[in-house]
Nucleic acid binder design. Structure first.
Lengths: 119, 119
DNA sequence: CGGCATCCGCTAAGATACTG
DNA sequence: CAGTATCTTAGCGGATGCCG
């Protein structure tokens, strides 16, 4: 894919912006390994994230069609999230990215995190 | 997008952080399509970027081993950049990302936010 | 020419409190 | 439970100026 004369516009940038936000890859990883998760469960699985940020990230992922949001107006309300087909596709590509990152060993946060890497 | 410091992280986050900075993908594409470029040439090929940002992005890409920097202490100095083998690998993966983005047509680059900019 | 240093403004991230 | 509202803070990005 050539950029040639297209000065400042690339769909990939929008996608990158969505997935590169803080916690985002973590959230995606959790959803990919745990399947469908409720908001509270997800929050517990992503230690340290605030409701505000989690909501924000999920909203953006949803807008991009990467995750599906299922809202049941029961009492108490029940909202669950899961990767969409797009999310699955994205996961495949991200795995390649992750493989590169691991191979290169960029020295970022090497703490125990098979994270997205292993799955 | 800022990543302060996630308690747990994965190597991919570091890589994503590097490549998702403003102008970064644009710079990578310029280097991939034009080959080796001097600082000034690159700056001219990325309209609107400041020296400070361009330097910053190139430094991070260099630190990640994605681009090679060649410095000749002539007068005037001559500094050129080119994709490293890692950069070529990365480009392959980014192409898949780009393909997804195009297929999904996320429709960013709207509201004149310079699209390429992200964070 | 190819930077780095500095100041400065903006926005995103964090914490906290509150609600249907 | 699953958010929203608000305030504060911190870091990024822009502009400018200087140097080898």
């Amino acid at each position: 894919m050539k950029f040639s004369e297209a000065p400042i516009s690339c769909p990939m940038d929008g996608l990158l912006r969505v997935i590169s936000g803080p916690w985002t890859t973590f959230i995606l990883w959790r959803l990919s390994t745990h399947g469908t998760l409720r908001f509270g469960e997800l929050k517990r699985l992503v230690p340290g994230v605030s409701s505000r940020l989690l909501t924000d990230r999920l909203r953006k992922l949803e807008d991009a069609g990467i995750v599906n949001r299922d809202y049941k107006p029961t009492i108490p309300p029940e909202v669950s999230y899961a990767l969409s087909p797009r999310g699955q596709e994205l996961r495949e590509v991200l795995k390649h990215l992750s493989d590169l990152a691991i191979k290169w060993d960029l020295g970022q946060a090497k703490h125990g995190d098979e994270a997205v890497a292993s799955q």
